[in-house]
């Protein structure tokens, strides 16, 4: 599994650089030009998608999955790597977001100080992202294409994003905690089920 992850990371090395550049540019635009209307949430929202989408685009164009499946790598390991690196990129996005916020608060001369994101905002972003990956990946493994699975994933992202924000907004503390825990558990469960569905699909996949 880690071999596949390494292979994926090497393949998208360039887009990780783009991802970092995007992150920095966004913060600079946001702070230097004092664009107040762009919420910090966008950093968490968009950045992890770049290398991930780039990986699947590249894989589809080059049909490099034929090579990957010719290596001594189990199909379940290939699927697991893709599920795991969706999480890795999500975490990476968060870490970079936090670094940027930290910088904005320690160097206030260069950038305008930014507030730390709330637990609510973190959930509102990370849960829909996992649902999106959980919808995208089985469809991608089934079709070998990324456009329709990508659009379906984004649609689910929007629905879940809207649902989670509605579900958690303006709740008293106790209810907020209970609801958020339930949502986290449901999302993890969905993600795990999605993984097993993907493994079943990918084991039957043929590369013509």
């Amino acid at each position: 599994m880690f071999k596949v992850m390494k292979a994926d990371l090497i393949s998208v090395e360039r887009s990780i650089i783009i991802f970092l550049a995007y992150e920095i540019t966004l913060v600079l635009i946001w702070n230097i030009f004092m664009v107040k209307d762009i919420p910090i949430i966008i950093i968490f929202l968009l950045t992890p998608m770049i290398p991930i989408l780039n990986l699947y685009t590249m894989e589809m164009n080059a049909e490099s999955d034929k090579i990957l499946n010719s290596f001594p790598a189990k199909r379940s390991a290939i699927v697991a790597a893709r599920y795991l690196h969706s999480i890795v990129f999500l975490i990476l996005g968060f870490i970079l977001g936090y670094v940027m916020i930290f910088l904005s608060r320690t160097i206030p001369v260069v950038v305008k100080p930014v507030a730390w994101p709330t637990y609510y905002k973190i959930l509102v972003i990370s849960l829909p992202e996992l649902v999106m990956a959980g919808v995208f990946l089985p469809l991608y493994f089934f079709t070998g294409k990324y456009r329709i699975p990508g659009l379906t994933g984004i649609t689910f992202f929007v629905i879940v994003f809207w649902g989670v924000s509605k579900c958690l907004k303006n709740l008293p503390d106790k209810e907020f905690v209970i609801n958020s825990i339930m949502l986290v558990v449901a999302t993890i469960l969905f993600y795990v089920i999605s993984y097993f569905v993907s493994v079943c699909i990918y084991r039957r996949r043929q590369f013509y």
Binding site: K6, A62, S70
Partner: peptide, 26 residues
């Protein structure tokens, strides 16, 4: 060891990168 008729490696990667990918599997 295998060689296919067509190239299925990602074209945007360097040979060094592709070698690193392959190496890790064997």
């Amino acid at each position: 060891g295998f060689v296919y008729e067509e190239n299925y490696f990602p074209e945007t990667s360097t040979l060094k990168q592709l070698k690193s990918i392959t190496k890790s599997f064997y």
